[in-house]
Structures are given as C-alpha cells and as structure tokens.
Amino acid sequence: MSKLVSISMAAEALGVSTSTLRRWEASGRLTPTRTEGGQRRYDVTALHSGPRYSAPSFRKTVSYARVSSHDHRADLERQKQVLELYCASQGWTSDIITDLGSGMNYRKRGLKRLLDGIVEGEVGRLVLTHKDRLLRFGAELVFAACQVKQVEVVILNLGEDTTFEEELASDVLEIITVFSARLYGSRSHRNQKLIDGMRTAVRDSQCT
C-alpha cells in the first residue's frame, strides 16, 4: 500500500523547495493527489522510484554554453550544435542556456538561471562541452552542488579547451581592469604605469 505524505515531506525527500513542487504541479511534471480538504499528498513510492542519479521525468536536462566576448559568437553556435546533437543522440530533450561573458564572472544571467534551477531541484542533468565553459575557476563548487542535488553532470570533452589561452588572457585583462579601478583613487602614477605595462604584456602574449 502506497504511503502518502505532505508537500513539505515530499520536498524534503526530493531535496527541493515546496514552491518548486507547486511549479511542477502547475506545469504537469508532478501531480499530487488531493484530500477532501484540498491538501496535497504525494506517493512516497513514486518519489523514490528509479536510480539515484537518473534524471527523473519531471527534472530537465540542461545544456550550458558560454563564450567570453562577441568576437566568439561563432564558437557559441558551434557549442550549441554539439550539445544539441549529443543530447539528441542520447534521446534527451534539452534546454540550452547560453552566456556571453568572462569565465571569471559569477554574475552572468545564464549562470544564475542555471544555478537557480539546480538549487530548486528543476535540473536533473547538466551537459557541457568543456568544464571551463561553466567557470574558469570554481566549477568544482557547482559540481559539488550538483552532487548534493543529485544532478548528473556530463562533460563531452575532458581535455583542454581549444580557446584556453585566448580566454585566459581575456580573464587576466579583466582582473587588471578591476584592480585598476581600485587603485585609480590613489592617483598613483607608479600604480597606473604598472597596470598599463601588465595590459601591454598580456596583449602582446595574445599576438605571439
């Protein structure tokens, strides 16, 4: 005999919030039964069926693609095509989230949307072309969150990204810009000269 539990107990069992369960109900992903008083009740057996790290039918497969600047839009389209073809070959229906911005930027709109989906339990599988498409540094923290939320992570290419040097140089320039803004208030000619020299060195390295 199936055991029916409240929405709060079901949310705890799935590792999501009660608001997420309400959204799933509204979208038809997970429909509870109702008591005579209109209270939601969830079948415990149905909630726990299936392998631990599988992406349940009510959780999405999300592909994430990113490039650092408008100059790399062609590479963004290539990433999207690779992700779409791979997911199709696996029989997965995938939502694609894209970002345009540095791998050092943790406030990108697409990344925030992805993290919100993981935290809310809406994402069951994350697909990337390379690990550093997610973040240049700190991707392991996102993967740790995926493990806690039982999100399967699929990385198509575990080797080095072909644009690693170019993007790393771009990230270094961004760091220099941030420090330049902080040091500008001191009006130090020596500081400005040092920063300009670092910018020149990074740009020269991109041309070699």
Rank of each mutant, 00 (worst) to 15 (best):
E165W: 12
K60C: 11
R29I: 01
H130T: 03
H72T: 12
R182K: 15
L4P: 00
R125Y: 00
Q192L: 05
S186F: 07
D75C: 00
S102A: 10
K131Q: 15
A201F: 03
I175N: 10
D161R: 02
R133Y: 13
S89M: 04
H72P: 14
C207R: 10
T61V: 10
L173Q: 13
R29W: 01
L114P: 09
L156N: 15
G138L: 02
T200D: 13
R182I: 11
K193L: 11
Q39L: 05
D71G: 08
S180P: 12
F143R: 06
R125A: 14
S186Q: 09
D116G: 10
S188G: 05
T177Y: 05
D116Q: 11
W24L: 08
E84V: 15
G117W: 00
E25D: 10
L134F: 06
G185Q: 09
F179P: 01
G197T: 02
D171K: 00
R182W: 07
Q206W: 02
Q206P: 05
G103R: 07
K112S: 11
Y42K: 10
V123A: 06
D43F: 01
K60W: 04
S6A: 13
R133C: 14
V153F: 03
E174V: 10
V67N: 11
E84L: 15
R203A: 11
L141E: 14
L85N: 11
L30Q: 01
K112P: 04
G121L: 07
L134Q: 09
G124R: 03
C146N: 10
L194I: 14
Q192P: 01
M198A: 15
S8P: 00
A201I: 04
L21N: 04
E122A: 09
S19L: 12
S54Q: 14
A88C: 05
G103I: 05
E160Q: 13
I97A: 08
N157R: 12
D99Q: 09
E25H: 03
R182E: 15
V154Q: 15
L85S: 12
L156R: 14
T33Q: 12
T61Q: 03
V62W: 00
A55H: 12
Q39G: 01
A13E: 13
T93D: 12
Y184D: 12
G117N: 01
R109G: 13
L168V: 06
R22G: 10
A201V: 08
